[in-house]
């Protein structure tokens, strides 16, 4: 079963050195997950200052600066994993470095027919 792990973290929570360490540790985690057949995809995201929101209303495209919702912790990255069940997904989430400072939201991925199988 696929789970999306969304990494929420206050963007000011880490300084540059800590962020570098976080990338190294996260890359290592991805390799561990890959070795266990759990890794599907993962990436950090650029800060919310780079966020753009797009809406289409009455056929008209509305492009605005900024994230969908202003929150105390911002979406800063994601992991897409394959896990046997929720407990396994929770165990992976607990190993994501920003879990120690922010929050990892786990969302089970819905499987729908008709998608390209990449």
């Amino acid at each position: 079963m696929k789970y999306m792990l969304l990494v929420y973290l206050n963007e000011q929570a880490m300084n540059d050195t800590e962020r570098e360490e976080c990338y190294v540790e996260s890359a290592q985690l991805c390799h561990d997950l890959e070795a266990k057949g759990q890794y599907l995809a993962a990436s950090p995201l650029h800060p919310v200052a780079t966020a753009i929101s797009v809406r289409v209303r009455d056929g008209k495209r509305l492009v605005t600066d900024g994230p969908f919702a202003e929150t105390r912790e911002q979406l800063g990255g994601y992991y897409l994993i394959d896990a046997r069940d929720l407990d396994e997904a929770i165990a992976v989430a607990a190993r994501i470095p920003p879990a120690r400072k922010g929050t990892i939201e786990i969302r089970p991925v819905m499987e729908i027919p008709g998608l390209p199988t990449g």
Binding site: M1, L86, D87
Partner: peptide, 14 residues
């Protein structure tokens, strides 16, 4: 069902 919460006795760590 949807999040697949396991039907198991937790591991010793949990």
């Amino acid at each position: 069902r949807d999040a697949r919460i396991p039907y198991e006795v937790p591991s010793a760590t949990d």
